[in-house]
Simulated scan of single mutants.
Amino acid sequence: MARPRKFVESDVVSSAGEVFAVHGLAAATLDDLVRATGLGKQSLYNAFGGKRELFLRALSEDRAEATRAVSEALGHDDASPLERIRGHMLTMAIEFSSSDRRVSLTTRALVESTGEEDPLSTVTKAGIDQLAGVYAQCLEHAREQGEIPADANVQSLAVYFVAITRGMELLGRAGVGRAVLTAVALDALRVLHGQAMPVPNRTPGSSLSS
Rank of each mutant, 00 (worst) to 15 (best):
V176R: 00
R166Q: 15
I148K: 01
V199W: 05
H141I: 05
P198A: 13
A142D: 09
V154I: 15
H141C: 07
S97F: 01
V180L: 10
D118A: 04
S104C: 10
Q130L: 14
R166L: 12
V111A: 14
D129L: 10
Q130H: 13
L189H: 04
A174M: 13
A185N: 04
H141L: 15
I164A: 11
E95K: 13
G172E: 03
G115P: 09
G127P: 06
L105F: 09
L90F: 07
L90T: 08
A132F: 02
A174D: 14
F96L: 13
N153F: 01
M89Y: 03
G177A: 08
L171Y: 10
T165F: 00
I148W: 01
Y160I: 01
T165G: 03
T107W: 00
A158M: 11
E140K: 13
E112Y: 06
F161S: 04
V103D: 03
A188Y: 03
I164R: 01
S121M: 05
V134P: 02
V162C: 13
E112D: 08
G133E: 07
D151Y: 05
S206A: 15
F96A: 08
Q137I: 00
A150V: 12
M197P: 00
V176E: 01
A174K: 11
R178Q: 15
S206F: 07
G194F: 08
V162F: 11
G175D: 12
G167L: 07
L157I: 04
L181G: 02
V199S: 09
G115T: 10
L157R: 04
R166E: 14
L171A: 15
A174G: 10
V103M: 13
A132R: 06
T182P: 00
T124G: 07
P198L: 06
S121K: 02
V184L: 12
F161P: 03
V191P: 02
Q137S: 13
A126Q: 15
Y135S: 05
T91R: 15
D151F: 07
V199A: 12
E147N: 05
A158R: 02
R166H: 14
D118V: 07
S104A: 12
N153Q: 13
N201H: 11
S207R: 15
A179D: 13
V176L: 06
T124I: 05
R202F: 10
S206P: 00
I164G: 05
G177E: 07
D187V: 03
S206E: 15
L192R: 04
A109L: 09
A185L: 08
Y160S: 06
L90S: 07
E95I: 07
E140L: 11
G194D: 07
V184S: 05
C138I: 00
L186W: 01
P198T: 09
T106Y: 04
S98W: 04
V199L: 14
L105N: 03
V103Q: 09
S207G: 09
R166W: 03
V111K: 14
A158Y: 02
G146P: 11
N153H: 14
A185K: 01
D129M: 10
I94Y: 13
V199K: 09
Y135M: 06
E144L: 12
S156L: 12
L186F: 00
N201F: 05
I94K: 15
E147T: 04
R143S: 08
D129R: 11
